[in-house]
Amino acid sequence: MRPRRRFTEKRLIFLKEKKSVFFWIYRGKSSMDMGAILSISENTVNFHIKNAKNKLNCSSRTVAAVKALKLGIVDI
């Protein structure tokens, strides 16, 4: 069994869509609103949020967005 690797800032690679989702989380938009703005489904928005929360080891979308900002992953 391979040892579990810890996430480092260098390994946190986010696609443009996830960065866009963080941008709209900062602005208080719902998943439905973000889907309409980004022309993707609400389920896709939630998928991006879930994956980002897992990568950042966060339990909520707001905490994940703040952590991404602190790590310099996204700009607002």
Rank of each mutant, 00 (worst) to 15 (best):
M1F: 06
M1G: 15
R2H: 11
R2T: 09
P3S: 14
P3K: 11
P3Y: 15
P3V: 10
R5M: 06
R6I: 06
F7R: 08
F7P: 00
T8M: 13
T8K: 11
E9N: 06
L12T: 06
L12Y: 08
I13Y: 06
I13E: 12
F14Q: 11
K16T: 06
K16D: 14
E17T: 10
E17R: 11
K18R: 14
S20M: 12
F23S: 01
F23W: 13
W24Q: 09
I25H: 02
I25D: 01
Y26S: 10
R27A: 05
G28K: 15
G28W: 14
G28Q: 09
G28Y: 12
G28M: 10
K29E: 06
S30D: 01
S31Y: 15
M34E: 00
M34S: 01
G35V: 04
G35S: 08
G35F: 10
I37A: 06
I37H: 10
L38P: 03
L38Y: 06
L38S: 02
S39D: 13
S39M: 15
S39C: 11
S39F: 11
I40N: 02
I40M: 15
I40S: 03
S41E: 11
S41R: 05
S41H: 11
S41G: 08
T44N: 04
T44I: 07
V45S: 01
V45N: 00
V45Y: 07
V45I: 15
N46C: 05
N46I: 13
N46M: 09
N46A: 02
N46F: 10
F47S: 08
F47G: 04
H48K: 15
I49W: 02
I49S: 01
K50I: 07
K50L: 13
K50Q: 13
N51F: 09
N51M: 07
A52S: 15
K53L: 14
N54V: 09
N54T: 05
N54M: 07
N54A: 10
K55Y: 10
K55S: 11
L56H: 03
L56N: 02
N57W: 04
N57T: 04
N57I: 05
C58L: 05
C58P: 00
S59R: 05
T62R: 13
V63P: 03
V63N: 06
V63Y: 07
A64D: 01
A65I: 02
V66S: 14
K67F: 02
L69E: 11
K70F: 11
K70G: 10
L71G: 01
L71Y: 07
L71P: 02
G72V: 04
G72Y: 08
I73K: 14
D75L: 10
D75G: 10
